[in-house]
């Protein structure tokens, strides 16, 4: 199964990961090899229970009891102003209910 350079770049964009040409070339070869290797799973017949883990998880009581931060966001945030986390402005992408002044 060979992965193309274009696919590597598309996947890298999905994963918001900058990948330069040299790295993309290397990844193309490595990933193709790995995918060839994992393709042996095709030997297994399809179907079968595949119902996943039957265990049910635990739920939490609805009460306000937060796990406190033992250090405030100012200690670890790269950029904080007026209590808000700051990032370079989002480009044209607009979720639709974000606020603009």
């Amino acid at each position: 199964m060979s992965v193309t350079r274009a696919e590597i770049q598309r996947i890298a964009a999905l994963a918001e990961l900058h990948v330069d040409d040299a790295t993309a070339a290397r990844l193309e070869a490595e990933l193709s090899r790995i995918l060839d290797y994992v393709a042996q799973l095709q030997e297994l017949p399809d179907g079968g229970d595949g119902d996943g883990d039957p265990r049910a998880g635990r739920l939490r009581r609805d009460e306000v009891a937060p796990d406190r931060l033992e250090a405030p966001p100012t200690d670890f945030a790269p950029a904080l102003k007026q209590g808000l986390f700051l990032v370079p402005r989002l480009g044209e992408l607009d979720r639709g209910e974000d606020e603009s002044p």
Binding site: Q82, L84, P88, L90, S100, P101
Partner: peptide, 15 residues
């Protein structure tokens, strides 16, 4: 919630 340009050129986020 994201706020655009409340700080100019930046997006501000309240979690």
């Amino acid at each position: 919630k994201s706020f655009h340009d409340r700080v100019p050129g930046m997006t501000a986020v309240d979690f």
